[in-house]
Design a protein around this nucleic acid. Structure first.
Lengths: 208, 208
DNA sequence: TAGATTGTTAATCGATTAACAATC
DNA sequence: TAGATTGTTAATCGATTAACAATC
């Protein structure tokens, strides 16, 4: 398989979601044209993206919704049903613990960690908060694959270091810093203030 | 000014943050080399990005931290101190209402809206939750510029329609749908499940 | 001055769009 | 069959990287 562009991978989750919605509406077959209309992505782009992973459509017909849905799920590795943990159960951590979309994508929320003794022991969305002191051991015991960092910025690097040592597979980081991790560690930075700042830029430059 | 690339604009908030941190550390001057090291962006990229807005550096010296910080703030329109409101005070909406980074970027959180009578009237981070029935009037009264949508997906389009009618300047959308808005409406979609899905893709393909 | 570092132009790389043959 | 729609190749567009003159 050739190298897949980052932009293509970023669009796959959108395709998956649109396919689910289409299926809920009772559609069995969908064309790249229709999928594009729903997502505001050109049909050519969609066909190109999908074609980089194989031939999923039927010429003259379109794509079988259920089939393509499963194919994309598989490509994204969602079939692995990764075990995830959230580190830092403040406002954002709690919100993510309650975010049902992750569950519906196939992720298992198996642990929550916090430092604060007034939070440890509490239950958020049916999961008990564990003391961060036993982070490494719990990651091994519960076979946690992905760590979600929602601690304040000044503690994020240390948490990342401990996750790396615990042989976690990937990190999803919400702390507003660029962390230093080994080259082979997979890390995705979710930077909430970028979106709002960009919006500010656009409304300043091109007011309606 | 030539057309600025979307990628460039996305990086400006990162520059701004790194400059703040540098200033906190007592730095007066910073080179593109050093800035690049902190952000893992090439110095050439940084110089190119900044150059598209003007000449901010001194050859042979670097960039004056405080000066550049203010310039980028200005470019991003953060000087406007936009009034923002959050619509949908569930877990995510509450978390955003408590997110201090927005305040430190210069945004004013002036209103929170919800439909649920058990939430209306409560106070989150010193702001009272208003009934969504009076959304339009409150937007006018409080001169709200940006609406943050954190309602469940099925209600998001309707909220967007009402924001558009209320002549809001921009929408920051957390609902997992692509909303239909007029072409001249500025909207940024913050799609939380994309990041996690992409992480799943990477750890599946290239396990450490 | 000599060393350092920007700003800018040219070269490369990557992603999107257009076009169309293949085929259901 | 005729119309529709994919998959793929070629053309265009946009973004990054490299190189270097300008200058502090």
């Amino acid at each position: 398989m050739k190298d897949i562009s980052k932009a293509t991978i970023d669009r796959l989750p959108l395709y998956l979601r649109a396919l689910r919605m289409s299926q809920d509406e009772g559609l069995d077959v969908i064309s790249s044209e229709e999928l594009g209309r729903r997502l505001e992505i050109t049909p050519e782009q969609i066909r190109k993206d999908l074609a980089s992973f194989g031939q999923f459509g039927k010429k003259g017909v379109g794509y079988y919704v259920n089939e393509l849905k499963h194919s994309i799920s598989n490509i994204l590795g969602l079939d692995n049903h990764w075990n995830i943990a959230i580190i830092g159960i403040g406002h954002l951590g709690s919100a993510l613990a309650n975010y049902h979309n992750f569950i519906s994508l196939g992720f298992n929320l198996v642990a929550l960690f916090d430092h604060d003794s007034s939070i440890v022991g509490k239950t958020v969305n049916h999961v008990k908060v564990t003391d961060i002191d036993v982070l490494e051991q719990t990651i091994k015991d519960l076979n946690i694959h992905i760590g979600i960092i929602t601690v304040p910025g000044q503690f994020a690097q240390e948490v990342a270091n401990r996750l790396v040592k615990s042989k976690i597979k990937g990190i999803w980081n919400f702390a507003p810093i660029r962390m230093k991790v080994p080259d082979d560690m997979h890390i995705v930075n979710e930077d909430l203030s970028i979106g709002l700042s960009c919006l500010s830029y656009h409304i300043t430059r091109k007011p309606r």
